[in-house]
């Protein structure tokens, strides 16, 4: 499925809305042509990215905004997650070593395993954008 333009979700930085964000991501991903397994991983990636925004960009404040845009192209689904927090150094965003069994540090691993491209960009007016691209294989679209 190719859409004529991006679909944009603008939600508060409130964990209570994450269930709705997951449901929406699931529908868009399937409609774009991704299979069930890839969709599950993508839903997890969007969830984790938003969780990172809530925790790190807004310090668990529920009154920030998160803008998630989905752009479905013939061969890919592009997702951009924008926050308006104070910003941070993307070099400090890394997952923990798998050999360490301790809470935390898994979100980045989940995001990386779900998408083909991911990139953080600082925004001139403040905040960050996480851009993710998932390519759709011919097998999935057939």
């Amino acid at each position: 499925m190719q859409l004529s333009g991006p679909v944009i979700l603008d939600v508060p930085s409130d964990p209570a809305v994450m269930s709705a964000v997951r449901g929406f991501t699931d529908k868009i991903s399937r409609a774009a042509g991704l299979g069930a397994e890839e969709t599950d991983k993508l839903v997890l990636a969007v969830d984790e990215a938003c969780t990172n925004v809530i925790r790190h960009a807004y310090g668990n404040r529920p009154d920030g905004r998160i803008r998630i845009s989905f752009t479905a192209k013939e061969d890919r689904l592009e997702i951009a997650i924008r926050d308006f927090g104070p910003g941070a150094d993307p070099a400090t965003f890394r997952g923990r070593d798998f050999s360490e069994v301790r809470p935390g540090g898994l979100g980045m691993h989940f995001i990386k395993s779900a998408v083909d491209v991911m990139e953080y960009q600082s925004q001139p007016g403040g905040g960050m954008v996480l851009k993710m691209v998932k390519f759709i294989s011919e097998q999935e679209t057939s």
Binding site: L44, E48, V101, R102, P103
Partner: peptide, 16 residues
């Protein structure tokens, strides 16, 4: 039906 890293962290803490 669903768990994310927050849920897993709770169980890792329990395991510890």
């Amino acid at each position: 039906p669903y768990i994310d890293s927050s849920g897993i962290a709770t169980f890792v803490e329990s395991l510890q």
